[in-house]
Design a protein around this nucleic acid. Structure first.
Lengths: 161, 161
DNA sequence: GAGCAAATGCAATATTATAACATTTTATTT
DNA sequence: AAATAAAATGTTATAATATTGCATTTGCTC
């Protein structure tokens, strides 16, 4: 019984709830505070299986009554979430997404659909070790890596072939 | 007798010249025009083994007398160079770099030094096929990918350990 | 050289992100 | 519980990156 991928129909409410629970656990363990604002931002990210831009999040917050926050508010929350492994930034999109596996070591890659933008996080050991061996061969010491694979997700391949 | 990597000392003038020759060949083959402006931008990219931001290129152009071009000028040249496989955009840096192997199919990855910014393009089959098999397993059809590995290059590891 | 397409110039503006400083909230110490 | 320190958030302004739309020029074809 593995978790459904974003492409499959699933109980999305539950999916969000689980993410929030996991986030609380991680924050407790890290001795940091998952404040209301940070939790709201994380929720926005999880409501969407698509990456959200910082300004999109900003609008979502504004549209939900919480006043009209300014950019730094969102960027700081995103920074916090990233530092604690609860969210990722997708460089090729300038957008952010909730992390699939908070708490676990982070060596993830992303499959980004160029039609529907649904984005799936994967943690492929094969890819990781390919990166590692490529770097080693060149005496390069990896600090972190960004692997973003853009293409057609299963749904969109069917839809428009 | 393989080409030197960016880390090694080498005849950089020759390195630029070769890149320009290769670019001319590619453009002829593609039936497109390597105009003066495009060639200047490509030269700027090759003068540096470090990725350059669009506005940095803009300043270099300005500082070399050619009037004071506006952003679209540079962005259009960069777009052209990318379309013809002569340059790449590094998403994680919002910066651009000359392509190492113009003409050849493009399946490249980047090793970016976080200290000196020297960036090396590699074309690892191991990585490519790892990406491919990861995607296949999820019925994802790759269109293109962005692999940017950030860390410490050989020189900088020695310098500040 | 007239006509057309491609390239460039140019002005304005959109989008993404950060800096600097004031205020508020939370936790800690007394 | 009041005083203090630390963390988080609010606010304003601005930096950095990128694009749109339209005018002009350049180079090519006939």
């Amino acid at each position: 019984m593995s978790a459904p991928t974003a492409y499959e129909h699933h109980d999305h409410h539950q999916c969000i709830d689980e993410a929030l629970m996991a986030a609380r656990t991680v924050c407790k363990k890290n001795g940091v505070r998952l404040t209301a604002l940070r939790e709201q931002v994380l929720t926005k990210l999880w409501r969407s299986h698509k990456p959200l831009g910082a300004y999109a999040i900003l609008e979502l917050l504004a549209s939900e009554g919480q006043g009209h926050p300014a950019p730094p508010t969102v960027y700081r929350a995103l920074e916090f979430l990233q530092e604690n492994g609860l969210a990722h930034r997708l460089a090729s999109l300038n957008a952010y997404i909730g992390c699939d596996a908070p708490g676990r070591a982070h060596n993830s890659q992303f499959l980004i659909c160029r039609h529907c933008q649904v984005t799936v996080e994967v943690a492929s050991d094969t890819i990781s070790s390919a990166l590692q061996s490529c770097a080693e061969r060149r005496d390069f010491a990896i600090h972190h890596s960004s692997v973003e694979i853009v293409g057609d997700c299963p749904n969109c391949q069917q839809a428009k072939p």
